[in-house]
Design a protein around this nucleic acid. Structure first.
Lengths: 200, 200
DNA sequence: TAAAAAAAATGACAAATGTCATCCGAAATA
DNA sequence: TATTTCGGATGACATTTGTCATTTTTTTTA
């Protein structure tokens, strides 16, 4: 019996998947977490074989959970199940040694098959992740990402310079460099692209 | 037998809900649409009793579909099923005479009960929609929304002035008014709040 | 290990945004 | 119907953002 924890903040999908996967003879959903912290707690205490992990969840993202569990050497195979085919998310997931990265546009039957596959030692990555724009490398440095994230939060260059102990000119220069690297014409487009790619 | 069309771009939820609702003795899922245009087409040809309608879908949003079907006098009860408790979405849905507005954090059992309720002539609105910030009235005029939407798309004041046949000063003044009404300190926060509220 | 490249950092200047005072026409109110 | 208020619109001025040239430090490469 493959023991599964589901980590998904959206109750309807969580419940529906829980029911459908439980119908399978060889699968057992032993817990359902609605945020990242519950996910960590259930995985630590119940020690499931598999965790189906959403990414964008309250309290702690699925990627943060995966990174934390890898750091703790927890022996649970994580399959990311997300809406977003974002290179930044994918790269981070791969670095966290997840066993799968599935998109939510497949069926629950396909998901069940992927779970069985992963239990047999395979890695299940949705085919469309391997090609095209999913391989986009993040062109921004860590500092640039830090700055863009704060701009995306609505902070002014003045505020950001105070937080990072930089001059306002430096912060403006970072923004200018970001705009140039992403080949956009202003900060709003820069934020949009970086979020779509999962780089911030 | 209550005949249901499901309109949901996310395949896994669409399939899972389709299966679970079909298990109910008195419910029959007769079609599943993955975008707004399919939804319109299926509703027009199959004439279901109920349509479960997501909002954010490709080609045509669920709200646009509902508005179009109201305009055509189509006799199908629409139940909005969305992730977002946004006053702008809610107001628009109510104006389109939908029969329900449910959030995706409930269970499929609760959803089935709501469908039965709606068939008996009731309106099903998630309780949390009636209170608090869901009643926030959009403080922006139509013109201000037009301008903010284009700013959110990354357009400059210069571009917007060309598109709307206004002077750049006028566009800047609209932005300034928007920033003041929403009580934020810049356009990025203005975009954020307006999107969260479903006003743009 | 040394040289080259990249990242981090800065401030002057140009360009864009945001504020403010103002005017006109439409809509709302008395 | 007249008056008041609001929305739409404009441009001058103040403030902020974005560009550019530059320097220093760190990282990468030969």
């Amino acid at each position: 019996m493959i023991r599964i924890v589901i980590a998904e903040d959206q109750g309807m999908l969580r419940g529906a998947l829980g029911s459908l996967l439980d119908f399978e003879d060889d699968l057992e959903v032993i817990a359902q977490a609605k945020n990242g912290e519950e996910a960590i707690r259930f995985i630590q205490t119940l020690k499931p074989d598999i965790c189906l992990m959403d990414i964008e969840m309250p309290l702690m993202s699925g990627l943060e959970v995966a990174e934390e569990l890898k750091k703790q050497g927890v022996n649970c195979k994580i399959i990311i199940l997300t809406t977003f085919a974002r290179p930044g998310y994918f790269e981070r997931a791969v670095k966290a040694d997840v066993h799968g990265y599935m998109l939510k546009d497949g069926s629950s039957d396909e998901l069940a098959e992927s779970i069985r596959s992963v239990m047999k030692g395979k890695r299940e990555f949705a085919p469309e992740l391997i090609f095209g724009s999913m391989k986009d490398e993040n062109p921004l440095t860590k500092r640039e990402c830090d700055v863009l994230r704060m701009v995306a939060d609505g902070k002014t260059a003045k505020e950001i310079s105070a937080i990072l102990f930089l001059s306002a000119g430096t912060v403006r220069n970072y923004m200018s460099e970001i705009i140039s690297k992403l080949q956009v014409k202003n900060r709003i487009e820069a934020i949009s692209i970086a979020e779509e790619k999962g780089w911030i």
